[in-house]
Amino acid sequence: MPLPNKNSEDDLKLKAKIASSKFLDNAFQVIGVVTMILAILVLGTLIAKLFIDGIAQLNFDFLTKFPSSKAAKAGVYSAWVGSLIVILLTAAVAVPLGVGAAVYLEEYAEKNWFADFIEVNVTNLAGVPSIIYGLLGLGVFKYGLGLGSSLAAAGLTLALLVLPVVIVTTREGIRAIPGNVREAAYALGATKWQVIWDHILPYSMGTTLTGVIVALSRALGETAPLIVIGAVNFIAYLPENLLSPFTVLPIQMFDWVGRPDPAFQQNAAAAGIVIIAMTLGMNAIAIYLRYYLRRSIKW
């Protein structure tokens, strides 16, 4: 097709077409920016509100005191320690299980209808409401295994909750490894296990850890399943072992929000700040780890 002559009818049509396309381009950009600003504003308002309400309560004492019936004396010591232990337990159970399952599915399992069936179900599990996991924990860990309303039962329940996310992200990390790098290792005479241990796991570690930490920061804020398995909302001592009763930050916060005394609302806000700080801290670790582990990897 020859180019249209300057200012001919075709030429003007072409210019009009380009102009209208460009208009759409700009319009979409504006919509994108507005949406992003709105999202950030909502989050910012939320955090600001928490800070305004809670900052007066938030001090070192708040972190080192046990809950109390007097709002001014109450703290979140048992709650943040409980949260920390539960999250560590969750990670200790979910990471080996999830990474193991992902490696099995990617590297060992035959690709057939059964593998597809498992894949679909793992993805579905990630979307199951958390309270359902609470019921599962109640039946299996609290009563079935006789763990009672303990840290162990909570850690195991949350581990089940985050397991699908760990499996899915690890598989994504493994799939991102180019086939020719894998073949290079096999061609040197490596066994399957050597390929997995020396290559697959280290190269997918960045993605896996990012997924794990994002999943754990979600678990950190979970309330419903822990209420179901019987977290206590008033504990004035630290847990002695993994079978001790426990509370966690969101449950402490939930308890305070429900009290009529407005002073407790401030405590709740302060506890909210602590949760957000822990979540942001974990995300910061995730970002750093991703950067650190991927600095050598350029595909």
Partner: peptide, 19 residues
């Protein structure tokens, strides 16, 4: 595995390990 220990291969695209 034994075969690959005796017979080495170089591929179409350079594929060094990220090491």
């Amino acid at each position: 595995i034994e075969v690959r220990m005796r017979v080495s291969m170089v591929f179409q695209k350079p594929n060094p390990f990220p090491k």
